[in-house]
Structure formats: structure tokens, C-alpha cells
Simulated scan of single mutants.
Amino acid sequence: MLSVVVPFGATASPKAPLIWAFGDSLTAGYGLPPEAGFTTKLQAALRRAGIAATVRNGGVAGDTAAQARARLRWGLRGLGATPDLVIVELGANDMLRGLPVAQAKANLDAILTELQARHIPVLLAGMRAAPNLGPDYVSAFDGVYPALAKAHAIPRYPFFLDGVAGNPRLIQADGLHPNARGVDIIVGRLLPSVRSALAQGARQ
């Protein structure tokens, strides 16, 4: 079988959009077989909806926003083509480590700035802070995502783990990562936002 290498910078076909899920263990599918991970299930859901998308996995378990920022350009080069949409899902590890909110915000801002400079549409997937971090941290952290979405004029999905967080039936034994059933719920709830972001990016 012949393989075709698409030069970096080439744009994916509108009929077969390329989506890059750029994040941490939640997009990487931590603790799950590949067929049960977020990117595989999102791709399947899009194709069932009549969108022949390819969803590439850009998740690295344990990544903070700073670590993701450091690998952003390398990751984009590795795709082989300019994505039609990047789903940015980061910040959970910054929060779990109690890192300064301003630091996470600055790195997320830099990631969004780089993607926009390349004219790549973005969907920002939000995260929420654990309540045990205290009201001041929670308020500051939770405010990062709407503030960045507004500043960059990009669509935002409020909470990546919506409908899953806090439900032990949908979480793995570590108490943090979704199980296969949880991923199904995440994909189902996120799908309309992904479709809308794709359509918005196509218009632009």
C-alpha cells in the first residue's frame, strides 16, 4: 500500500476535517484501551453524524499547560497538515498540583495565541478546580477559561468532565479519570460544540 505524505501547511479537505485534541491524560485516554479513549470515540461520533473527520490524539498524561506549550510547535509539525480544529484541554494538572493560577493562564494564553497566529480554529475545553483548594483559588482558576475565550474570541466548552466528575460509576479507580462509559458521556456532550466549532472555522 502506498502512503502519501502531505506537506506541513497543507490544509485538510473540508469534507474530511482534521481535528487535533491537544491536552493531558483526559484526551490521551489514560487507563483505557485505544478503542475506548476520547479521540477514538469522538472520531466515531463525528462520522456517525456524517462528518468524515480524523481526530488525532495530542494528549500527554501529566502535562501542565507549560509542558504542553513547550511541545506545541513540535506537535503541529508532526500532524503533517494544518488541522481544521484544535481542541485545547489543559490546566487540570496545574490545578491538581496547586500551581499559581496566573502561571497556568499565561501558558494557556500563549498556546491560544500561537494557534491563532497560524489561523487555526480552536475550541477551548474548560476545567474546574477542586473545592478543597479553597474559594480564592477556585474562583481564580475557574475564571481563567471564560476570560481567555473572551479575550481570544474563541468558542468554549465550559467543563470537559461535565456529567462525569464526581460520579464514581463513570470514573476509574484512581478517582480522577473517566472510564469508558464516562468517555461516552463526555463525547456526547462535547459533540455539538465540536460540530459548531468546525462549522465556524470553515466559515472563517
Rank of each mutant, 00 (worst) to 15 (best):
M1Y: 02
L2D: 11
K15P: 06
A16V: 02
P17A: 04
L18T: 00
W20H: 10
A21V: 04
F22Y: 06
A28L: 10
Y30I: 02
A36R: 15
G37L: 05
K41C: 15
L42E: 10
L46Y: 07
R48T: 06
A49G: 12
A49M: 03
A53N: 03
N57M: 06
G58V: 05
G58I: 08
G62N: 03
A65W: 10
A68H: 09
A68G: 15
L72I: 08
W74G: 04
G75C: 08
L76C: 07
L76W: 00
G78F: 08
G80E: 07
P83N: 03
E89V: 14
G91A: 08
A92S: 13
M95K: 01
M95H: 06
L96V: 03
L96Q: 08
R97F: 00
G98Y: 07
L99C: 09
P100D: 00
V101P: 02
K105M: 09
L108R: 07
L108E: 02
A110F: 03
I111H: 04
I111A: 05
I111R: 07
L112G: 02
T113H: 10
L115N: 10
Q116E: 15
R118N: 12
L124H: 11
L124F: 13
A125Y: 11
R128F: 05
A129M: 14
P131S: 09
P135G: 13
D136T: 14
P146W: 11
A147D: 13
A147W: 05
H152L: 05
I154C: 14
R156F: 14
Y157K: 07
P158F: 03
L161W: 04
L161T: 05
G163K: 02
A165W: 07
N167K: 13
P168G: 02
P168A: 08
L170H: 04
G175K: 13
L176W: 11
H177V: 07
G182H: 01
G182I: 06
V183D: 02
V183G: 07
D184I: 00
L191I: 00
A202Y: 01
A202H: 12
